[in-house]
Deep mutational scan, measured.
Amino acid sequence: EPREEEAEKYIKRANGDYDKAQELAKKDGNEEIAEAIKEYKKR
């Protein structure tokens, strides 16, 4: 799923820090991806 791939990219950029990844996504205006990262975190 493209959303998950995007989320993974942010998580990698944030060195595995989900909260930081979420912030990066929000900064880029990717609210949807920020949500996907939140879902990811719950797994």
Rank of each mutant, 00 (worst) to 15 (best):
Lys27Val: 08
Lys9His: 10
Gln22Glu: 12
Glu4Ala: 11
Asp17Pro: 01
Gly16Trp: 12
Ala25Val: 02
Leu24Glu: 07
Lys27Gly: 08
Glu1Ile: 14
Leu24Pro: 00
Arg43His: 08
Arg3Lys: 12
Tyr40Val: 07
Lys26Ser: 09
Arg13Tyr: 08
Lys20Phe: 11
Lys42Pro: 04
Ala36Ser: 07
Ile33Ser: 03
Gly29Gln: 05
Gln22Thr: 09
Lys27Met: 13
Pro2Leu: 14
Asp28Thr: 03
Pro2Val: 13
Ala36Glu: 07
Asp17Tyr: 02
Ile33Asp: 02
Ala14Glu: 02
Pro2His: 14
Pro2Thr: 15
Lys9Arg: 11
Lys27Ser: 11
Asp28Leu: 03
Lys38His: 07
Lys20Asn: 05
Asp17Gln: 03
Lys26Ile: 15
Tyr10Thr: 01
Gln22Ser: 09
Glu23Phe: 09
Lys41Phe: 08
Arg13His: 06
Glu35His: 08
Ile11Glu: 01
Ala7Val: 15
Glu39Val: 07
Asp17Trp: 03
Tyr10Gly: 00
Ile33Arg: 02
Lys26Leu: 15
Glu39His: 07
Tyr40Arg: 06
Ala7Lys: 03
Arg43Glu: 06
Tyr18Lys: 03
Glu31Phe: 15
Glu35Asp: 10
Asp28Arg: 02
Asp28Pro: 00
Glu31Ile: 13
Asp17Ala: 03
Glu23Cys: 10
Asp17Ser: 05
Glu6Ile: 10
Pro2Cys: 15
Asn30Leu: 13
Ala36Val: 13
Lys38Val: 09
Glu31Cys: 12
Ala36Met: 15
Glu1Ala: 13
Lys26Arg: 14
Glu4His: 13
Ile33Asn: 01
Asp17Thr: 01
Lys42Gly: 07
Glu32Tyr: 10
Asn30Asp: 05
Glu39Asp: 08
Gly16Asp: 03
Lys12Leu: 10
Ala7Gln: 04
Glu35Gln: 11
Ala21Phe: 00
Lys42Phe: 10
Arg13Gly: 04
Arg43Ile: 09
Gly16Val: 01
Ile33Cys: 04
Lys38Thr: 06
Ala25Arg: 00
Tyr18Thr: 04
Lys27Asn: 11
Glu6Met: 12
Glu8Met: 15
Leu24Ser: 05
Gly16Cys: 07
Asp19Ile: 07
Arg43Cys: 06
Ala25Glu: 00
Glu32His: 13
Lys20Ser: 05
Ala36Asn: 05
Asp19Glu: 11
Tyr10His: 00
Glu23Asn: 05
Glu4Tyr: 14
Ala7His: 04
Ala34Trp: 06
Ala25Phe: 01
Glu35Ser: 08
Ala7Arg: 04
Glu4Ser: 13
Pro2Asp: 14
Asn15Thr: 03
Glu32Met: 10
Glu35Ala: 11
Ala36Thr: 08
Lys20Thr: 06
Glu31Ser: 09
Ile33Pro: 01
Gly16Glu: 03
Lys42Ile: 11
Leu24Thr: 04
Glu1Met: 13
Pro2Gln: 14
Lys38Asp: 06
Gly29Ala: 04
Glu5Asn: 13
Asp17His: 04
Tyr40Glu: 04
Ala7Tyr: 07
Lys20Val: 13
Glu23His: 06
Arg13Cys: 14
Ala7Ile: 15
Glu32Cys: 07
Ala21Leu: 00
Asp17Gly: 01
Lys26Tyr: 12
Ile11His: 00
Ala21Arg: 01
Ala14Lys: 00
Glu32Ala: 12
Arg3Thr: 13
Asn15Glu: 07
Ala7Leu: 14
Ala14Gly: 03
Asp28Glu: 12
Asn15Val: 04
Tyr40Ser: 04
Lys12Ile: 09
Lys9Ile: 12
Asp19Lys: 06
Gly16Arg: 03
Glu8Cys: 15
Ile33Lys: 02
Arg43Leu: 11
Ala21Pro: 01
Pro2Glu: 13
